[in-house]
């Protein structure tokens, strides 16, 4: 009886709603549009790093999060659906001061997933940029020229047909 009287008061409802928001906060925040905060991120066909990335997703891009499965978010980006690791959306946070940190020289942030540490790094555009800076003789301008040469799909089909080849 006393509890029901207590629940009729608006201030108490606010308290209950506040607690509910605290408990459900992460789920609510994760749904909908999210901004990629980390550089060199990619969208994968499956929720793991072992597959081939579908497309690179630049830092600052907003993607639509459809579902969440553990550490992986299923997202929609440029009309494609794929998976991105939660680390891609990580917020930069200042370390919280702690007593052991103050006593033993401060803490170092450690990532949760072993895979994250390895898959987001490796031979990336950043490494290529440094390599180019170090090796000015490497002719990347002509590599870009080679990559920019595309065969029109309709023309290729006509070429195949004209040569009696298999479509």
């Amino acid at each position: 009886m006393r509890a029901s009287v207590w629940l009729r008061k608006p201030r108490c409802w606010l308290l209950v709603l506040g607690l509910a928001a605290l408990l459900c906060g992460p789920g609510i925040l994760a749904a909908g549009m999210m901004k990629v905060t980390q550089a060199n991120q990619s969208m994968y066909g499956e929720p793991n790093f072992s597959g081939t990335p579908i497309a690179p997703v630049p830092s600052g891009t907003e993607v639509n999060v459809v579902t969440i499965s553990g550490d992986w978010y299923q997202v929609e980006y440029q009309g494609n659906k794929g998976w991105m690791h939660r680390q891609a959306f990580a917020q930069v946070q200042a370390p919280t001061p702690s007593l052991p940190g103050m006593l033993f020289g401060g803490g170092v942030q450690q990532t949760k997933s072993d895979e994250v540490a390895l898959a987001g790094k490796g031979f990336t555009p950043e490494v290529e940029a440094s390599y180019r800076q170090k090796n000015p003789g490497a002719n990347y301008a002509q590599v870009d020229q080679v990559e920019s040469f595309q065969v029109d799909s309709a023309k290729l089909q006509a070429f195949i047909k004209e040569g009696g080849l298999k479509p």
Partner: peptide, 24 residues
């Protein structure tokens, strides 16, 4: 634990560098 093979994007950047060296 997290050892892995070189992935397709890394292969791509290696290939670009090899091509750039040839075209040098």
């Amino acid at each position: 634990a997290a050892s892995r093979e070189i992935n397709d994007s890394e292969e791509y950047y290696v290939g670009r560098a090899v091509a750039a060296r040839i075209l040098g």
